[in-house]
C-alpha cells in the first residue's frame, strides 16, 4: 500500500448517502433488517418449540441435539445450498440466521421456564391458575431474564454473521469488506467494522435496557 491512509474521510462523506444502492446508509439499513429479522423469527419459532420441550420432556434431548447440529453448520455452504431455492435475495441470509437463532433460543426458553422455582409453580397451581394462565402470568414472566440473555447472544452474533452474506452480494455492511478487498482500499472495511460493532453494542444495550424495564423484580439489581 503506497501510503494509502487507513481512513479517507472524504470517501465516507461522499458515499454516506448517495441515494443509490450500495451507499453506506442503505447498507446499514439492509444490515439491520437482515440481522434483526432472524432474531424475531428465531424467537417466534423457538418459543412454541421450547414450550413443547418443557411440556413433553422427551422432546428436548433430540431437539437440542438437532439444533446443535444446525448451529454447527458453517453459514457459507448453507447459503450455497439455499441459492437454488431462494436465489440471490436477502432470504438466503435471513433463513439460516433464523435457524441459528432458533438453535440458541430453544434452550433459553427451556432453561427460562426451568428457572421458575418449584415452590412458585406449585403455589400457582394451588391457587387455582389454569395451565395456560399459569404459563402466561407466572412462568413466562419469570423466564424473561433467561430468554433475554439468549436473545442478546443471538442478536449480537446475528449482526456479525450477516456480513458473510457479502459473498453472495447480500451482506449489508459486509459488502464494504468485499469492496475494500477488491480495490485494495481499507476505508470501507474500517467503516464496516466500526458500524457493525457500534450496531451490536447499541442493540445489546437496548435489549439490556428492555430487560431492566421488564424485570424490576430481579435481585441482581440490588435493593431498592
Amino acid at each position: 500500500m503506497d501510503g494509502e491512509p487507513l481512513v479517507r474521510w472524504d470517501w465516507i462523506w461522499r458515499n454516506w448517502s448517495t441515494g443509490r444502492a450500495g451507499s453506506i446508509d442503505s447498507l446499514l439499513q439492509q444490515h439491520v433488517v437482515m440481522a434483526l429479522l432472524p432474531v424475531v423469527l428465531g424467537l417466534v419459532v423457538a418459543l412454541p418449540i421450547g414450550l413443547a420441550c418443557v411440556r413433553w420432556r422427551w422432546l428436548y434431548q433430540p431437539t437440542a441435539g438437532l439444533m446443535n447440529v444446525v448451529y454447527a453448520l458453517p453459514s457459507l455452504p448453507v447459503f450455497m445450498l439455499l441459492l437454488p431455492a431462494t436465489g440471490l435475495g436477502p432470504a438466503t441470509v435471513i433463513i439460516p440466521l433464523s435457524f441459528y437463532g432458533v438453535a440458541v433460543l430453544i434452550p433459553a426458553v427451556v432453561d427460562g421456564i426451568a428457572s421458575v422455582p418449584d415452590h412458585v409453580r406449585q403455589s400457582a397451581v394451588a391457587m387455582g391458575f389454569t395451565p395456560l394462565r399459569r404459563l402466561l402470568r407466572v412462568e413466562l414472566p419469570i423466564a424473561v431474564p433467561v430468554v433475554l440473555a439468549g436473545l442478546r447472544v443471538v442478536a449480537v452474533s446475528s449482526i456479525s454473521l450477516v456480513s458473510v452474506g457479502a459473498l453472495i452480494g447480500q451482506g449489508g455492511l459486509g459488502n464494504l469488506f468485499t469492496d475494500a478487498f477488491k480495490r485494495d482500499f481499507p476505508t470501507p472495511a474500517v467503516v464496516g467494522i466500526v458500524l457493525i460493532v457500534a450496531l451490536a453494542l447499541l442493540v445489546d444495550g437496548l435489549l439490556l435496557a428492555a430487560q431492566r424495564l421488564l424485570t424490576p423484580w430481579q435481585r441482581a439489581r440490588g435493593s431498592a
Binding site: P117, H119, V120, S123, A124, M127, V138, V144
Partner: peptide
C-alpha cells in the same frame, strides 16, 4: 394454600 418458602411470585 400456604407453602414452605411462601412461594410468592417474584415478579
Amino acid at each position: 394454600y400456604v407453602i414452605q418458602q411462601a412461594g410468592l411470585f417474584p415478579h
